[in-house]
Amino acid sequence: MTQLEKPELVCPAGTPASLRTAVDAGADAVYCGFKGPTNARNFSGLNFTKAELTESVKYAHERDAMVLAAINSFPTAGRTDLWKKSVDDAVELGLDAVIIADIGMAQYVAREHPEQRLHLSVQAGASSPEAINYYVEQFGVKRVVLPRILTVAEIKRVHDAIDCEIEAFVFGNIGMMAEGRCSLTNYVTGVSTNMDGVCSPASHVEYEPDEEENLTTRLGEFAIDCISCGETAGYPTICKGRYDTAIKKNYYAFEEPISLNLTRLLPDLIKAGVTALKIEGRQRSRAYIRSVVSSFREAIDAYAIGEEPDISQLIALTEGGKETEGAFKSKTWR
């Protein structure tokens, strides 16, 4: 196997302890968000206060790791001040980049903090050279996080036609919805994934076992799955639920519980021009972060010296105990 350039390994953190774990496990960069609706993982008990992020940035920088601020939800009218304050705080704390989805916030960063490195979030849903180059030309975006809808060959074509770096997801949650456009949670709960930053808020989720430990999952007032005893489970999201439809009974109408795992495609992604490899999972525990980050660290380092990595332990951390290469491998994956 030929040796490859080492891409940047970008890892998630939902708490300060997770951030330290990611750094210690070999992350080149860690992305995280402030408490509240300004980021797309606004889950209960998760995220950072300004004081926590101050300490966390210090910890990471002392170990040559970068910290990226995810400010990647969409402010509704009248609420932009909170997003602007998050941007101002991220700049003040010396974060290495801010990750933005909203076009207004991109303009705010470019105007108020022109020296701040700006990344375009996957939530912006920019997947064509035209869209990406618009953000590059107008706001000085330095990196785009690509939606999980492109094949590796398409990523290569995008790379050749744009003037910024590419970051690609390689592990974790994957859904069928257009990134940044999904309104299923909003429809059922009144809480918006894109504007409140939370998909399937825990306050609206309920698990109800019967005497044989079959498990009914409810979101709001709706049953979205009934998992038999012994079956694996997934996240309580509408897109991973099972439904009776006109064509089929009790089946995953959108997508089955499954996780993205592109370990085997890493060499192809690097050759296609991907600068940074991103692990999903700010809502996951330190144990997940320790295991996934160290596995990918080893995989990247192994490929860099022409060796084949061992990735067998990652399957235990996947949703539903299943993994896929998704659209990266083929558009017919679902």
């Binding site: 430990e213 498990l215 998992i227 005893c229 012994g230 079956e231 694996t232 489970a233 997934g234 519980p257 809502q283 996951r284 525990s285 144990a287 997940y288 295991s291 235990a316 951390l317 996947t318 949703e319 539903g320 105990g321």
Partner: peptide, 9 residues
């Protein structure tokens, strides 16, 4: 990981 424990029941 508690999510994985939940996924695996």
């Amino acid at each position: 990981d508690s999510d994985a424990l939940f996924f695996n029941r």
